[in-house]
Amino acid sequence: MITPALPMLLAAVLAGAGVYGVLARRHAVLMLVGVELILAAAGLVLVTTGQVTPDPLASGAVLTLFVITIAAAEIVVALAVVMALYRARGHVDLQHERSES
């Protein structure tokens, strides 16, 4: 039986880094990395909770598989949007305005 303190602390650090990456960055790809860190923290919390609490259906592990699947689909769609943004603007900086000259 594991103690949930260290995995929960790691999940908190991952979530904090992910939130910082989403809020402080202007680059679209780095924002996507932040979102992936948040999803990884959620998966870690689900697995840790599933290991600590007795559950015959292994709900924590099953929900983590759903989170991983959704994260993979999300990153594919988001990278397609980033590529379209790069083709249209020439950069992926989300706050940079194009100068018309």
Rank of each mutant, 00 (worst) to 15 (best):
V13N: 01
L85R: 10
V19W: 05
A78E: 04
V13K: 01
P4V: 02
I70E: 06
A78R: 10
L94G: 00
A40S: 14
A41P: 00
R87P: 05
M83L: 14
A41N: 00
V81K: 14
T3V: 09
R25Y: 14
D55H: 03
V76Y: 07
L85T: 13
G21Q: 03
A42Y: 01
L63S: 12
R87C: 06
A41W: 00
R26T: 14
A5V: 15
A84F: 12
H27N: 10
V13Y: 02
A15F: 12
V81N: 11
V13A: 08
A78Y: 09
G50Q: 03
T64S: 12
V29E: 15
D55A: 06
T64E: 07
V62Q: 10
H27T: 00
Y20Q: 08
E100N: 07
G18K: 02
L44P: 02
V82T: 06
A71Y: 02
I75Q: 11
D55P: 00
T64K: 02
L63P: 09
L46I: 06
E97P: 10
A28H: 00
A15E: 09
V82P: 14
A72W: 12
A28D: 05
T3Q: 15
M31V: 15
M83G: 11
A73I: 14
V19T: 10
A88W: 09
A17Q: 09
V45K: 01
L65C: 11
V67C: 11
A71M: 07
L37M: 05
V22K: 07
V52I: 07
R26N: 11
D93S: 05
L23K: 07
L57C: 10
T49A: 07
V82W: 01
L10S: 07
S59Y: 04
Q51R: 12
A5K: 14
T53S: 08
R98C: 02
V67H: 04
L63C: 13
I68L: 14
A84S: 14
L37Q: 00
T3D: 15
T64C: 13
E74D: 09
A24I: 07
G50T: 04
I38C: 02
E36S: 10
I70G: 03
S101R: 04
Q51P: 02
T48W: 01
H91G: 03
A72L: 15
A80M: 13
V45L: 13
V22T: 09
A40G: 08
I75P: 09
A88E: 12
T53D: 06
A11E: 00
P4R: 04
A61Q: 08
V77A: 14
L23C: 13
V77K: 07
L44I: 04
L37R: 00
V82Q: 11
L32S: 15
D93G: 03
G21K: 10
H27D: 15
A71F: 03
I75S: 15
S59A: 09
T53M: 10
I68K: 07
R87I: 03
Q95L: 13
G50W: 02
V33P: 05
L23W: 06
A24Y: 08
L85G: 09
D93F: 04
A12F: 11
A5L: 15
I38M: 06
G21Y: 05
G50I: 04
